[in-house]
Every structure is written in structure tokens, then in C-alpha cells.
């Protein structure tokens, strides 16, 4: 497998002088084509900042991001990002259907293909019946599913997801995890997936990047070679799953005990739904 994304010596500092806040320090990892990489780390450690630098939305203060060996200076073609702030990421003036379709229009797809993809994606997240509604008429979890449908319908080459399932109930969440895996298999999508939830990270990933507390650096990269296809029950019953889960958990917790750790109040959210 060849690498598609390379992050080297990436640093990001917000503000300057006394107000300077180092969010990322020297992040280094790579993602191979078709790989599923999870990123875990404590709240506020800079995961969103990392994704925004990778997608070209934020300019890194140092280091570089390369996609196919080309430096990323603006959002590249073939990349989609599911934002953590899903309620601000949908266009409230457009219907659900139009929200999903707009990026496809911008990509120049003809209207038949667009309709087909919008239909499939909304159907896959169980929201086909809401296509004529507007985002404010949906619950938070439904809005997030629309944002996910929009990203899947786009069929990006590389998909970045920022805690996409955090506000979604356990049952739907399991379904969406499997949907993401299926879609990726079907279209050969490379996924970089940020989450608080270690079980989720282990269940989904080929490799897990564990970040240290702020300023975030890479603590460790854990290989997660559980058999595929993954299954919500069988995979999670494997002894290997339990040991990986324990291993990552310890890596994350240990990473909080480094000298620059922000103290005991900096909780890792193992459960979903906490922002």
C-alpha cells in the first residue's frame, strides 16, 4: 500500500505573543491508501485543529501536510470533512436533499447521478423520508446523519470525520459505524476518524494515532489488525479486541501523566455524547 497522506512536523499555534496557544506540536504520521486511521486524544488536545490543518482550512504554523506528495494549501479535490459542529455545518436555508446535493453540483455531476446519490446516501442513514425538510426541523442526531450522508454521497477519496457519532444514540451509532466501513470498502475511501471513544476507535481502525494532551503530539501509533469485515458483536467479543482496547486506553491515560498534562480535570470521554 502506498501512502496517500503525510503529516510531517506539523505545528499550529493560535494567536501570538502572550496570547499564543500551542495547539499542535510536531505531529508526524502517515495514512496509506484505503486505510482507516482513528485519532484519539483527550478533549481540547487539538484533534479538530489537526483535521482543519490536514484539510487545508487552517494554515499550519510549521511543518507540512502532503496529499499524494503535493503540499495541501487549500481544500483539495476529493476530500470531505464531517465537522464536529454539525448543526453549524448544514445550510439551514436549504432542504436536507439540497444540502446533500450542493457539493455534488459543485463537482459537476449530472442531475440524474446527483439524485441517485442523494437518495442512496439519505436512505443509508435512514433519513430518506426527511429529504424535503430543513435542518432546523431535525434533531441534533438527525442533522449529524445528514452531514454524514453529504460526505458519503460525495464519495471522497479521503474522508475526514471529527467525532461524527458523538451526538447519536448507541444503536444508530453502531449502524453508522458499519455504514462507514461498508462505504469505505465499496468505494475504496481512505478514512481519518477522530473520536473520544476508544471502543469505537479500535472497532473501526486499521491503526490508531494516540495524541498527547495539549500541545498535541503523537504519543503512539497502535496497529489494530482485527479481522475484517468487522462485526459489532463478534469483533467486540474477541480477546484481541479487549487487549487492544486496554492497550489504547492505557496509552491515552498514560499520555495524560506527562509533565505538561493539564491535571486531573482533563477527562477523557470514554462514553459518547460528551462535548
Amino acid at each position: 500500500m502506498t501512502q496517500i497522506l503525510t503529516v510531517s512536523a506539523l505545528g499550529k499555534t493560535y494567536g501570538r505573543d502572550q496570547n499564543a496557544h500551542v495547539a499542535l506540536a510536531d505531529i508526524e504520521f502517515e495514512v496509506r491508501r484505503g486505510e482507516f486511521v482513528s485519532v484519539v486524544g483527550p478533549s481540547g488536545c487539538g484533534k479538530t485543529t489537526l483535521l482543519k490543518c490536514i484539510s487545508g482550512l487552517l494554515k499550519p504554523s510549521s511543518g507540512r501536510v502532503e496529499l499524494h506528495g503535493q503540499p495541501v494549501l487549500e481544500p483539495p479535490t476529493g476530500m470531505a470533512l464531517v465537522f464536529q459542529d454539525y448543526n453549524r455545518s448544514l445550510y439551514p436555508w436549504l432542504t436536507v436533499e439540497k444540502n446533500v446535493a450542493l457539493p455534488l453540483e459543485a463537482r459537476g455531476l449530472d442531475s440524474r447521478t446527483r439524485r441517485q446519490r442523494v437518495h442512496e446516501a439519505l436512505d443509508a442513514v435512514g433519513l430518506e423520508h426527511t429529504k424535503r425538510r430543513r435542518p432546523y426541523q431535525l434533531s441534533g442526531g438527525m442533522q449529524q446523519r445528514v452531514a454524514i450522508a453529504r460526505a458519503l454521497a460525495y464519495r471522497p477519496e479521503i474522508l475526514l470525520m471529527d467525532e461524527p457519532f458523538a451526538s447519536i444514540d448507541a444503536q444508530t451509532r453502531a449502524e453508522l459505524e458499519d455504514l462507514t466501513l461498508r462505504t469505505r470498502d465499496q468505494f475504496g475511501i481512505t478514512v481519518l476518524f477522530v473520536t473520544h471513544d476508544i471502543d469505537e476507535a479500535v472497532y473501526l481502525a486499521d491503526r490508531i494515532v494516540v495524541l498527547t494532551p495539549p500541545p498535541a503530539g503523537v504519543k503512539e501509533i497502535v496497529t489494530c489488525d482485527l479481522p475484517r469485515p468487522r462485526d459489532q458483536i463478534q469483533t467486540k467479543e474477541l480477546a484481541q479486541f479487549a487487549s487492544l482496547r486496554g492497550y489504547v486506553y492505557r496509552a491515552v491515560t498514560k499520555s495524560r501523566e506527562t509533565p505538561e498534562g493539564s491535571g486531573p480535570s482533563e477527562q477523557l470521554h470514554v462514553e459518547a455524547g460528551v462535548e
Partner: peptide, 26 residues
Amino acid sequence: DEVVVQTTDVYRIKGPRRLFMVVLPA
């Protein structure tokens, strides 16, 4: 909204489409 702008950037929605479907409505 910053997230609206960033969403539009990521999906590379540009030109008149960006103007009429995103910027003006927003």
C-alpha cells in the same frame, strides 16, 4: 458562520453557486 464558510471551502463550492446558494442566503 465560520463552519458554514469552512464547509463550503471543503466541498469546493465556488463562483456563482457559492454566491447564490451560500453567501447571499447566509
